[in-house]
Design a binder for these strands. Structure first.
Lengths: 242, 242
DNA sequence: ACAGATTGAATGATATCACATATCTCAGTC
DNA sequence: GACTGAGATATGTGATATCATTCAATCTGT
């Protein structure tokens, strides 16, 4: 056992981690081990491979990744500093269980920042990015048909971040990424077992159209609507859980 | 010598650090060493004790703080991840020299987020916080009279963050703090040697009034104006330097 | 049988050590 | 005199060892 969490899922997760990391990317990269670990953990969080409340231990992950505790601890610390993990004093790191208040807080900030990014993206987006958006959207529709939540969420992430990258602001991109890291586990948990419906795609369609027409305020509106919709759904489902 | 930077200021800075940290805060705190180091470095960055371009070394700071390299390395890494320091591979950490493009980028994001925080603060701010704002403002005026840039900047920071804390969003607060960390060294450097003028206070007066009247959009406007003004001044001065 | 004390295992934090690499210094060479 | 390259030095990074703390299971006394 790599961790002591009650759900007992971490061994499986850890082995997934291990394979993810064991592709050493044999370029001349200046990539440090802790960066690799950090990136792997980010992806795991974003893809919902960790459940809220699950505990992560330094040694457990170090074994899973096949590295020493040092870079793992530093990656965990960085995630904790960003609010993506909760660090309990002298205990373990934990995937945070966020409250509905926090969800709403995040939603407000996301709406402001991602809306701003979308508006900016409308001015600068290139044809290639628009095509990329079309493809991501097509993937989402297919995922809905197959009821494949994982593929849906991956395509959704790709769709959004293609837009945000197009905004050309490194600052915005970093902050938005940090926000997604926080909401990711909870979002993905809730999406895991539901039936995906076509309606979820409306806001994306609107965003796509607005970006194509280079209409900044419409693009903003569409993204904000998407965030609000998902957030409302999330809050509703969280409410039911209690 | 604790570092090898050409300006040769780091020894003095380091000793200032040392005294800052050597007050061990003998509470039962769960505070870790790396957190203490991180906080000290944050404050140093915010107060302009480091110049853009200055290099910081793990071992140098460790000596200055009287701790082992480990917690220092982790604090530096965290700052680098937040964009408050630049990490040069197998070289040293460096206080970033930011471009005017980055300044404008930061300014846009700051305007959106700090404006949002001010608007929210207008709804929720308490009488006690308003008094705190008055005091901070009075300190700023006194600092202008004395031409004391350091006191001015400290009071300015206190003023702004009192507002942002009043907004009641931990998410916003963290992000804004991160943005200030990035802009801090450059901002403080430029303010160090100028003659402070009364006009700098206008936006703060307007913000204070708007918050007192609980007028959210006016409060937003005032804060945005303050950011834009300072940013324009900053860009102008940076332009002159070339 | 039960409540409190105790001990042992697990964990994160820190210190120390080892290593690869980038930069600098300064002979030696053309 | 300028340049090249080997060695020295400084640096961040990663691994390992040790420590303090926490928590839970066990033990003990009533």
């Amino acid at each position: 056992m790599t961790t002591s969490n009650p759900s007992g899922r971490s061994a499986a997760v850890a082995s997934a981690m291990s394979t993810a990391l064991s592709a050493p990317v044999l370029q001349v990269s200046r990539e440090t081990l802790r960066t690799r670990v950090y990136d792997s953990l980010c992806e795991a969080l974003m893809m919902g491979r960790f459940e809220p409340g699950q505990s992560l231990t330094v040694r457990g992950l170090a074994d899973a990744f096949g590295v020493s505790p040092t870079p793992v601890r530093e990656a965990l610390q960085r995630l904790a500093a960003a609010g993506a993990l909760a660090a309990e004093p002298n205990r373990f790191y934990r995937v945070p269980v966020i409250t509905t208040e926090t969800i709403q807080d995040l939603r407000r900030v996301r709406a402001a920042l991602e809306g701003m990014a979308a508006e900016e993206a409308a001015k600068r987006i290139q044809r290639g990015d628009l095509q990329k958006l079309e493809r991501a959207n097509a993937k989402m529709l297919k995922a809905i048909d197959r009821q494949d939540a994982k593929a849906y969420l991956a395509a959704n992430e790709s769709f959004h971040f293609t837009i945000y990258r197009a905004a050309g602001s490194e600052t915005l991109l970093q902050i938005i990424h940090g926000l997604w890291l926080r909401i990711g586990p909870t979002l993905n948990l809730l999406f895991r077992d539901i039936t995906l419906v076509r309606g979820l795609d409306d806001a994306h369609q609107a965003a796509l159209r607005a970006l194509g027409e280079r209409d900044g305020s419409k693009a903003r509106e569409a993204i904000v609507a998407d965030i609000m919709e998902a957030g409302a759904y999330l809050a509703k489902t969280a409410e039911q859980d209690r």
